[in-house]
């Protein structure tokens, strides 16, 4: 779907992006992570040609993006930025309907599409359609930003730290909603963040950048298991890598059959992440947990002693999206 090969971007003498290559397959969620100023936004903005790349090639469905008209190309690609960039002089409804109107959809179709999107993003039409951006909270504004990017139903979504300016609780909520949205819409997403947890939670392909270059790329678990160097390792949380790995697997993947002995007092649902289950063990001072199904029926158990003895390679269950 999107392919960058040996892409370079220079601002004057400065190399902002240096020989970057990666591929994002259709329906894949790719996260660009790295420290501030490493060229993430620049890479992203080259994909919708807000910046022109200096060297290399960027392909969209196998075609170089320079073959497309830049304006037409951008209308096919959703774009969400941290500061929302909502037009302050337009209502929420008008903001969301922008790209469909640019594409000259009939106004009834624009109207129904706007309502559909507001519904999808949990913005009651009656309450929000006629509000102006300055009347919204940060979270609501960011929802409108996402709705606006999705308006013309683009296959590709570029997101530049969309949740960076939100408080942790709102951020987590929007991450959860984005994940749910993605499991229904199957967009091809390139997502810039410097929050490694956000990247691990959402993405199925990680690209770690440093000073304009790609240091390592792969699935979250590949990177967690085999960080290429100290930089990637510290990027991934250093000694906390173990917990971050555990955060990516479900209790169900490590559960043992119920043993005939007395079942443990503490219960966890099988859909919980292993990381949360470990936290429950620490909280309840126990090394055994009873795993229950959604109806609270015991289906298995989790044992710290057994977990530690699991062979290393076995942990590689990539999470499905």
């Amino acid at each position: 779907m999107i392919e960058l090969s040996h892409v370079t971007k220079r601002f004057g003498d400065e190399m902002a992006v240096d020989d970057v290559s990666f591929k994002v397959a259709k329906g894949e969620f790719c996260a660009l992570v790295g420290t501030s100023g490493c060229g993430k936004s620049t890479t992203l903005r080259m994909i919708n040609r807000l910046l022109e790349h200096s060297e290399g090639e960027i392909l969209l469905d196998g075609q170089p993006i320079r073959d497309f008209d830049a304006v037409q190309l951008r209308r096919r690609i959703g774009y969400v930025i941290q500061s929302t960039g909502l037009f302050p002089h337009w209502t929420v409804a008008r903001n969301i309907g922008l790209v469909p109107r640019l594409l000259k959809w009939p106004s009834t179709k624009v109207h129904s599409r706007v309502e559909q999107l507001m519904h999808l993003l949990g913005l009651p039409v009656g309450e929000f359609a006629h509000k102006f951006p300055h009347q919204l909270s940060g979270g609501q504004a960011q929802r409108v930003g996402v709705a606006r990017a999705l308006a013309a139903d683009p296959d590709i979504l570029l997101m530049d730290e969309p949740f960076g300016a939100l408080d942790p609780i709102t951020r987590e909520k929007l991450q959860e909603e984005l994940r749910a949205l993605q499991s229904r819409l199957h967009k091809t997403i390139v997502f810039v963040t410097h929050d490694i947890d956000e990247a691990l939670q959402l993405a199925n392909h990680l690209v770690v950048m440093r000073a304009g270059r790609v240091v390592q790329q792969g699935t979250p678990l590949e990177l967690l298991h085999h960080p290429a160097d100290k930089f990637v390792e510290s990027m991934l949380g250093g000694v906390e890598r173990g917990l971050k790995q555990a955060g990516l697997t479900r209790v169900a993947d490590h559960m043992l059959p119920l043993s005939p002995t007395l079942p443990a007092q503490s219960r966890v649902p099988s859909s919980m992440s292993l990381r949360q289950a470990l936290s429950v063990m620490l909280r309840d001072h126990t090394e055994r947990l009873t795993v229950v199904d959604p109806h609270d029926m015991p289906v298995g158990e989790l044992s710290m002693r057994k977990l530690i003895r699991e062979p290393k390679a076995d942990q590689g269950h990539d999470r499905e999206h």
């Binding site: 919708n48 807000l50 037409q72 929302t84 960039g85 909502l86 302050p88 922008l98 790209v99 640019l102």
Partner: peptide, 18 residues
């Protein structure tokens, strides 16, 4: 005029005149 708004305007696919 806020550069973020202008960035978004171009990013959404408005041409220079728009």
């Amino acid at each position: 005029v806020s550069p973020a708004v202008i960035d978004a305007a171009y990013g959404m696919g408005m041409d220079t005149r728009q």
